[in-house]
């Protein structure tokens, strides 16, 4: 075991872990930040998406040792001042959420997109969330919610 001080959502978390454990397992099982989901555990579904130094990555295949000296942002870190982020609000109100299991990953991918491109086109939204699989919605309502969150016109 190694000792890690991890910077997550602006806080420092102390934990022991094997260096090759996934960030996802450390988040969920050791730090009890369970918002990031485990869907496939092999980098295919996007449910575990978190931001590493501002970039969306797959925490299920990211080793915890690669997170040293970096900033992690998870779904739990998105609300500001106790208020849900606009993406979280629009996803809720526009039917972008059914079973909810892919939702945190979708929101993190969308958040990363809006950070670098505040007014994305529909194509840019679909490209950015192509790595997040949803089996319930058929994606249309998700795309509409993200367009609303970005303040861009909805088809």
């Amino acid at each position: 075991m190694e000792h890690y001080s991890l910077k997550i959502n602006g806080n420092v978390y102390e934990t022991d872990a094997e260096p090759f454990e996934s960030l996802l397992d450390v988040l969920r099982e050791k730090l009890r930040l369970t918002g990031s989901k485990k869907g496939c555990d092999e980098g295919e579904c996007g449910s575990c998406t978190v931001l590493l130094d501002g970039k969306p990555v797959l925490s299920c295949i990211l080793l915890v040792s690669d997170v040293r000296e970096k900033e992690v942002l998870t779904i739990e870190g998105l609300p500001q001042g106790g208020e849900p982020h606009p993406i979280q609000v629009e996803m809720t109100e526009r039917g972008g959420i059914q079973c909810g299991y892919c939702t945190p990953g979708i929101i993190m991918s969308a958040y990363a997109l809006l950070q670098e491109n505040p007014r994305p086109s529909e194509d840019e939204i679909r490209f950015a969330i192509a790595g997040n699989i949803c089996r319930c919605t058929g994606y249309s309502k998700i795309v509409e919610a993200l367009q609303a969150a970005a303040g861009t016109p909805i088809r």
Partner: peptide, 14 residues
């Protein structure tokens, strides 16, 4: 279109 009662919790990851 009615927001689902449990959707916000899902969006917040809680």
């Amino acid at each position: 279109s009615v927001p689902k009662v449990d959707a916000l919790d899902k969006a917040l990851g809680i």
